[in-house]
């Protein structure tokens, strides 16, 4: 069936099986492999993307169900060459190690900060509690999101790495 949606600001239209999961539509049909997956039971949150600005587990939504909606993935976080403060925060505060859960975590963080620019630690922890990170123990993810809250202006990406 033909499925059309907006992904990272671009209208896309593809012929897919009705059963195709959104995560596979993004990763395989569109080649946007920044969205990962980690389970079969909607528990791990690795596959989180924003649909109409809201964090959604893309393994538990059909591509067909997403037709007509706006999807934002990690590839759409940076604004051109300018990183989102959340991306910057994750680098500053070591909010990632293997990087596998990171795209989902960052997108949830973005949605949280859009709703609530200055969340407290408890609010941040609750917001990311549908997503599992096996590397960081979460404290640095919390700090990364706090960093982003404290630095709402985006930083140019050519200054992002010092080492």
């Amino acid at each position: 069936m033909q499925v059309s949606m907006t992904v990272n600001g671009t209208e896309v239209s593809r012929d897919v099986e009705p059963r195709q999961l959104l995560v596979h539509f993004l990763r395989e049909t569109l080649g946007l492999t920044g969205t990962h997956w980690g389970c079969d039971t909607s528990n791990c949150g690795t596959c989180v993307v924003l649909v109409d600005g809201v964090p959604v587990k893309s393994c538990t939504q059909l591509a067909a169900m997403t037709a007509g909606h706006e999807v934002r993935t990690v590839e759409g976080l940076a604004d051109g060459g300018t990183l989102d403060p959340v991306q910057q925060g994750f680098m500053e505060e070591h909010g990632l190690q293997c990087g596998f859960c990171t795209p989902g975590m960052m997108l949830t963080a973005r949605a949280l900060l859009d709703r609530q620019p200055h969340p407290d630690e408890t609010t941040i922890r609750e917001a990311i509690s549908g997503q599992i990170c096996r590397c960081t123990g979460y404290a640095t993810i919390v700090r990364s999101i706090q960093w982003a809250a404290a630095h709402p202006a985006a930083a140019p990406s050519d200054q992002e790495v010092r080492a």
């Binding site: 909607s42 949150g45 989180v48 809201v54 964090p55 959604v56 587990k57 538990t60 939504q61 949830t108 609750e126 917001a127 509690s129 549908g130 997503q131």
Partner: peptide, 9 residues
Amino acid sequence: IADPVVRNR
């Protein structure tokens, strides 16, 4: 109920 991301759907 479930987790915050699931509650969005």
